[in-house]
Computed example of a mutant assay.
Amino acid sequence: MVLFNYIVMCLIFGTTFLAIKIGIDAGATPFFSAGIRFFLAGVILLGWMVCTKKARLSLLLRKEMFLTGIGLTFGVFAALYWAEQYVSSGIAAVLSATGPLMIMLIQSRVTRLSLSGTTLAGCLIGLLGVILLVLPGLTITYDKWWVLGCLAVVVGELFYAVGAVYSRHVIQHFQDTSPIALNAAQMVHGGLLLLIVSLFTENVHIGSMFADPRSSLSLLYLIFVGSMMGHTIFYWLVAKAGPVFPSTWLYISPLISLCLGVAFYGEPLSLLSLAGGITILSGIILVNLQSLRQLLDREPKVVRHIGK
């Protein structure tokens, strides 16, 4: 059951970038579609947790949920949705994989611990991968909006990294509250902030937006499969197998997204960009090498658990 859910989670997270791209290309406005996705997903999940008495509605009044929502939902997805107007879903997915590198750098800064040689090498390799990935847009056919889109994804991951580091403090502070409820509450706040930005920056025509079935189906998929099902499986896996094993989706899902975009949506991919994507993932593996070794040491226990 653990292995099956892990595969499902990787596939879900690997398809969400393409689903976003399809919705945007079909006419969905970036901030509104992102906002309605996370606001509704958060409301439904939190409502379910409150009804089952696993959380309280007053959780929404805590400033920690608002601050986490800025980092984990508002900042990262405002940038990602805007960027996918100009950047392919595969490139956006691979650039989003830089998040763990930033988390490591910020975490070391907060704890004032020096990075190991392997970790530092992984961060530098990841940076080289970003340069390789963006280089074709700078040298071959310069496109200002493509470059800005790539930079936006990276800036969004900086928001995500800060939010992830802060969320560890929040989870420790709310030890009696389910992580699913905490995630739902921050999605409500982040989604609401996205809707507020949309109100002042976008001219939303809901009727025409949902006239194209691609737009409405994309939104429904992202709400119920991407935001609710995907994250629920992730937290279930954390509870069953620990945090290291579920987090390895970061090595698999970007490549799934890259392949899906090229194979089924006709997205272009240069050899240099492909090399950049592989380099980024190699850097992530180096940064998390110690955690991966711990996972391999625990593998027999995980297999026995799966057998049950």
Rank of each mutant, 00 (worst) to 15 (best):
V155P: 04
G42W: 00
I280C: 11
L250I: 15
G307T: 13
V162N: 08
A78L: 05
G69S: 10
R62V: 01
I36P: 02
G261W: 00
I252M: 14
V134N: 06
I180T: 08
G27I: 05
A152C: 14
I280K: 09
K301E: 11
A181Y: 02
Q186H: 12
A181R: 07
M104H: 03
I7S: 14
I206E: 09
S167R: 10
S282L: 14
S218G: 09
Q175F: 10
V134P: 05
G69M: 08
V8R: 09
V225Y: 05
A26W: 08
V188I: 14
L45R: 04
R62I: 00
K21P: 08
I131N: 07
R214E: 11
F200S: 12
P100G: 10
N5F: 07
A181H: 03
F200M: 12
L72Y: 02
H173R: 13
E84R: 00
V147Q: 02
M187A: 07
L292Y: 10
A239Q: 15
T29M: 12
M187Q: 12
K144V: 05
Y235S: 03
A211G: 15
M229E: 06
S58F: 11
I131D: 02
S96V: 06
F74E: 00
M65E: 09
T52Y: 02
A263S: 15
V43H: 00
F264G: 15
I284D: 13
H189F: 11
L59P: 07
R298V: 06
L286H: 04
G126Y: 02
L59T: 12
L269D: 02
A78T: 13
L120G: 08
W146C: 02
I306Y: 09
V87M: 06
S247V: 07
L67E: 01
E267C: 12
V262R: 10
I196E: 13
I20N: 00
S253D: 12
G23D: 11
L274C: 10
G230W: 10
M209T: 09
G23H: 03
L199R: 13
Q172L: 10
T68E: 11
G27C: 02
P254C: 05
T15W: 10
L260P: 09
N5I: 00
P100A: 01
Q290W: 05
A93N: 05
L182S: 03
V87R: 06
G230Q: 06
S216D: 04
L101E: 05
M228G: 03
K144W: 08
L274K: 09
A184R: 08
L182Q: 04
T119Y: 00
L105S: 03
L222D: 07
I103T: 11
V170W: 13
